[in-house]
Design a protein around this nucleic acid. Structure first.
Length: 493
RNA sequence: GCUGCUAUAGUGUAGGGGCCAAUCAUGUCGGCCUUUCACGCCGACGACUGGGGUUCAAAUCCCCAUAGCAGCACCA
């Protein structure tokens, strides 16, 4: 697994990446950095995760160093076995410069050990108050009775926690901070809890560290030098400072970027899960979702996401992620490679009067004639899209010839009208895609707004998994190609 | 309620006292190129939240207001 993930740091993928701005330098980073991406396995990754992943990745590549993928799986309620695999697939897709993977569920004993030390340093105490009671005391800046226990008493309680003598909700470990702190969020926050059920899929614990503790211990032990994360963690950064101070450790440098919403999609895992359960979405890769799986299926390349994220940068302003900007990045990556094909939506079959058999040669890519062409054999009958011919007297069948349109009650009679390109230009007649009657494959174009049935060239079936351009329609990813036809997911114009 | 962060064109971003009647990208519109409404090229449009203050000079510094966001969980 690691081998599959470990990229060559010295030779990052050469390649066309749309030029993107340079991010501000990091403090004290010239000698290299150690950074981390720390998702929790509660579901697949989405664009919000991609921001954290790529921002950190950017600086690791820029300064060199290590990039730790840390799986934060210390909440058994939010961890499901199958999510680990989903997560690793997504990490793979992102193409991060990850150098090592750490699972917090493998490190429970380490957290227990350091908790004991923190208690010995009088930096933490075991609290058996009810959560509600503590909360009201905290808001009044008052200490709870447990706060005055001595080290021996606290260690005794801690041992009883570990040996299973407490049940869920009865006890917690708190950091001794400053009860008079003006920010109530800072006052004696919790760092351990007990969870009786469900069992953790990867370890046998019932005493679990809370994020603010495991993160500090891990960041220190793993030698993390810089942390870039969302500003929703800004209070956590301040809380964690107390723990660093007790241990006498030097905290990493922090950068907190602003909140990012995404036009038209929900990012919350629980909301997505609910939508899937209610069949509003087909699954994690439903094109209406902002998951990486969904955008990958639509033909968005990871490089486009990376570029869009780096452009957004580390600003603390709340922003709204715009699909337009992502599409522009993706188009820049995809256009030079994507082969061109004809797709006729809502096709109607028409006879063309007055034209002899001939074969059209349409380039696979207009800017790269050397890649060859597709041959479309005209034998008298063709499919076109009514929207393309309706209302026009003259139309150019691309790479073939001109036709005059006679429209009668929704049906079209086509009549050969010469080969002159100049003529259609002068007449400002449209140049449209078409397909020969004899060689077509059914094709379903799946757009977020709905599915569009149509026909496409048989050669499209050979592009499965790739992004192609349906001329005059847009860029699509060929999702599947079988006996029942082709299924294409629409990416963008 | 308490605490904190942020505020530049439709979207994203640069600029951190004078070089800013504000950068770049994207978008939209127009033109050129072109057997795609793609790509490429040219041009246009479009913004410093409001009010005070400091200063010879403020998008930039300070204060207030407003707005958005976040935290105040035995989630991350």
């Amino acid at each position: 697994m690691l081998a599959r993930l470990a990229p060559d740091l010295l030779a990052p993928k050469a390649g066309k990446r749309p030029r993107e701005q340079e991010l501000p330098p990091l403090e004290n980073a010239e000698q290299g950095v150690v950074m981390r991406f720390a998702p929790n396995p509660s579901g697949p990754l989405h664009l919000g995760h991609a921001r954290a992943a790529y921002l950190n990745d950017y600086y690791v590549r820029r300064y060199g160093g290590r990039y730790v993928l840390r799986i934060e799986d210390t909440d058994p309620r939010r961890v499901e076995e199958e999510n680990y695999g989903l997560l690793l697939d997504d990490i793979d897709w992102l193409d991060l410069a990850v150098t090592e993977i750490v699972y917090q569920s493998d490190r429970m004993d380490i957290y227990y050990d350091y908790c004991r030390r923190l208690i010995e340093l009088e930096g933490a105490y075991v609290c058996t108050c009810e959560a509600e009671l503590f909360r009201s005391l905290k808001l009044e800046k008052k200490a709870c009775p447990c706060r005055s226990q001595n080290v021996e008493e606290n260690l005794g309680l801690w041992d009883r926690m570990l040996s299973g003598l407490f049940h869920e909700g009865m006890v917690t470990v708190r950091v001794r901070t400053d009860l008079a702190h003006p920010d109530p969020a800072m006052r004696d926050f919790s760092i351990f809890r007990i969870v009786d059920t469900p069992p953790h899929p990867r370890c046998e614990a019932r005493v679990y560290p809370l994020m603010n503790f495991s993160v500090v211990v891990d960041d220190h032990l793993l030698g993390i030098t810089h942390v870039i994360r969302g500003k929703d963690h800004i209070a956590n950064t301040r809380r964690q400072q107390y723990i660093y101070d007790y241990f006498g450790w030097k905290p990493p440098y922090y950068l907190h970027y602003g909140r990012m919403s995404i036009e038209g999609v929900v990012l919350s895992t629980s909301a997505m899960k609910e939508g899937i359960r209610e069949h509003r979405y087909t699954g994690w890769d439903d094109p209406h979702l902002g998951t990486l799986k969904a955008i990958a299926r639509r033909g968005i390349l990871p490089g486009a996401v990376r570029s869009a994220i780096i452009d957004i940068g580390v600003g603390e302003t709340d922003i709204s992620f715009s699909w337009e900007n992502l599409y522009a990045k993706n188009k820049a990556l995809v256009d030079p490679d994507a082969n061109r094909y004809f797709f006729v939506p809502q096709p109607v079959l028409c006879r063309v009067a007055g034209a002899g058999d001939q074969t059209a040669h349409a380039l696979l890519h207009p800017n790269h004639p050397e890649r060859g062409s597709r041959d479309l054999a005209f034998r008298g009958g063709i499919y076109v899209s009514p929207d393309d011919v309706s209302g026009h007297a003259l139309v150019r069948l691309k790479d073939l010839f001109n036709v005059r349109i006679h429209e009668e009650k929704g049906t079209f009679r086509l009549e050969y009208a010469g080969d002159s390109l100049e003529e259609v230009r002068a007449a400002r007649a449209p140049i449209v895609q078409w397909l020969p009657e004899e060689t077509v494959v059914p094709c379903l174009l799946r757009k977020p707004e709905g599915d569009i049935p149509g026909l496409c060239e048989p050669a499209v079936a050979g592009e499965a998994g790739k992004v192609v351009q349906f001329e005059r329609v847009g860029f699509v990813r060929i999702d599947s190609a079988g006996s029942e036809g082709v299924q294409a997911y629409y990416a963008h114009r």
